[in-house]
Amino acid sequence: MYLFYVIVGVLFCVSYADFVRESELDYDGWLQLRLWQAFNDDPMPVFTERGNITVSSVRSGASVVGQNGLLPAQISALKNLAEHDGKYRLKVLARTSSGSEITFLSSVPACYLLGSDLEDIITIWLDSAAEPIAVSISSLGPCILDNPFTNMWTTNVVVRYPDGGPIPDTAMYIQKLEREREARERGETKDNRSFLAKYWMYIVPALIFLLLSSATNPEAAAGGSAQRQ
């Protein structure tokens, strides 16, 4: 009986975690991102327009990317950044379907963009209300200083929601309870709990049943008292 209550409780926790995660994804909307890029390593970046990203559904992550190719002077500036261990900087203006606008700044080592032939990953982090809380740029590299094979960006857009937290390992927990029960039956462990602590799961349902029976049949209880008098 005790094991039954434990299993029901654990399954309830797992179902509740799934419900919370589904409720976070319940809202769907769109996002528009305007991108600017900077090739200088000065404290004050000089941004030029790079392109746009439209996320038509934040739930599915479906997106359309439109970007300008790099000019020869921009590729030279990117190589110069890489040679000096500089970072390529990206500014993003995100506009949501609710009408809010937020600006984000991110960066990635320039040599990684050269090593990946201008292939990068733009990750959009959303909160439970599908509002952007961060936008980051990354590239898998490797870090090299050679000219890229192309002057066109290859951008992968990823939409992320916050994790719902770890889910309990139900099977392992049940196995542990079974091992402890078998050990107690074999007498390998001594149970020092009090009578109430050992058998509360039987006593409480019995008391509840008695209280409910008394509440639903008060006349019978009164009649019994009268007869005893």
Score class of each variant (00 low, 15 high):
residue 164 G to I: 14
residue 83 E to T: 11
residue 141 G to I: 05
residue 24 E to K: 03
residue 39 F to K: 04
residue 206 A to F: 14
residue 91 K to A: 10
residue 216 T to E: 02
residue 93 L to E: 10
residue 19 F to D: 11
residue 104 F to S: 07
residue 175 Q to F: 09
residue 198 K to Y: 00
residue 218 P to T: 06
residue 204 V to M: 10
residue 121 I to D: 07
residue 154 T to C: 03
residue 33 L to W: 01
residue 136 S to C: 03
residue 167 I to L: 12
residue 131 E to H: 14
residue 66 G to Q: 15
residue 8 V to W: 06
residue 77 A to T: 04
residue 25 L to S: 04
residue 47 F to C: 04
residue 101 E to L: 07
residue 153 W to K: 01
residue 146 D to Q: 08
residue 129 A to F: 11
residue 84 H to T: 15
residue 7 I to S: 09
residue 81 L to Q: 02
residue 211 L to M: 15
residue 77 A to S: 15
residue 104 F to A: 12
residue 127 D to M: 04
residue 15 S to T: 10
residue 160 R to T: 00
residue 95 R to T: 15
residue 106 S to K: 13
residue 176 K to G: 11
residue 83 E to Q: 15
residue 222 A to D: 04
residue 18 D to H: 13
residue 167 I to H: 06
residue 40 N to A: 08
residue 187 G to V: 11
residue 101 E to I: 03
residue 132 P to V: 08
residue 215 A to N: 12
residue 53 I to Y: 01
residue 94 A to Y: 02
residue 38 A to I: 00
residue 129 A to E: 07
residue 32 Q to F: 01
residue 103 T to S: 15
residue 140 L to D: 11
residue 170 T to N: 09
residue 219 E to R: 14
residue 139 S to L: 07
residue 187 G to R: 15
residue 21 R to Y: 04
residue 24 E to C: 09
residue 16 Y to S: 06
residue 61 G to T: 08
residue 157 V to P: 03
residue 87 K to I: 04
residue 29 G to H: 05
residue 142 P to D: 05
residue 138 S to L: 05
residue 164 G to K: 12
residue 168 P to S: 09
residue 92 V to G: 06
residue 161 Y to P: 02
residue 181 R to A: 15
residue 151 N to A: 15
residue 144 I to E: 05
residue 170 T to S: 12
residue 161 Y to I: 09
residue 63 S to W: 01
residue 216 T to K: 07
residue 78 L to Y: 02
residue 129 A to D: 09
residue 144 I to H: 02
residue 64 V to G: 01
residue 30 W to A: 14
residue 79 K to W: 03
residue 83 E to K: 15
residue 189 T to H: 07
residue 86 G to T: 02
residue 57 S to N: 14
residue 177 L to T: 02
residue 43 P to N: 10
residue 206 A to V: 14
residue 54 T to V: 11
residue 92 V to M: 09
residue 14 V to S: 00
residue 96 T to I: 03
residue 191 D to V: 10
residue 181 R to D: 07
residue 123 T to A: 05
residue 63 S to K: 02
residue 122 I to F: 01
residue 21 R to N: 06
residue 224 G to L: 15
residue 135 V to Y: 01
residue 156 N to H: 09
residue 67 Q to F: 05
residue 110 A to V: 08
residue 137 I to E: 00
residue 110 A to I: 05
residue 206 A to Q: 07
residue 175 Q to I: 11
residue 207 L to R: 04
residue 72 P to Y: 08
residue 158 V to H: 11
residue 133 I to M: 00
residue 118 L to I: 08
residue 135 V to Q: 00
residue 143 C to K: 00
residue 218 P to Y: 02
residue 141 G to W: 04
residue 68 N to S: 13
residue 16 Y to N: 04
residue 75 I to W: 04
residue 208 I to G: 02
residue 223 G to D: 05
residue 74 Q to C: 07
residue 108 V to T: 13
residue 177 L to G: 00
residue 157 V to R: 01
residue 1 M to Y: 08
residue 12 F to M: 14
residue 66 G to W: 02
residue 73 A to Y: 11
residue 222 A to H: 11
residue 44 M to Y: 13
residue 119 E to R: 14
residue 42 D to Q: 15
residue 156 N to F: 09
residue 99 G to T: 06
residue 30 W to C: 09
residue 98 S to G: 09
residue 37 Q to K: 05
residue 168 P to C: 08
residue 173 Y to H: 07
residue 116 S to F: 06
residue 145 L to A: 10
residue 118 L to Y: 03
residue 174 I to L: 15
residue 88 Y to K: 08
residue 49 E to Q: 13
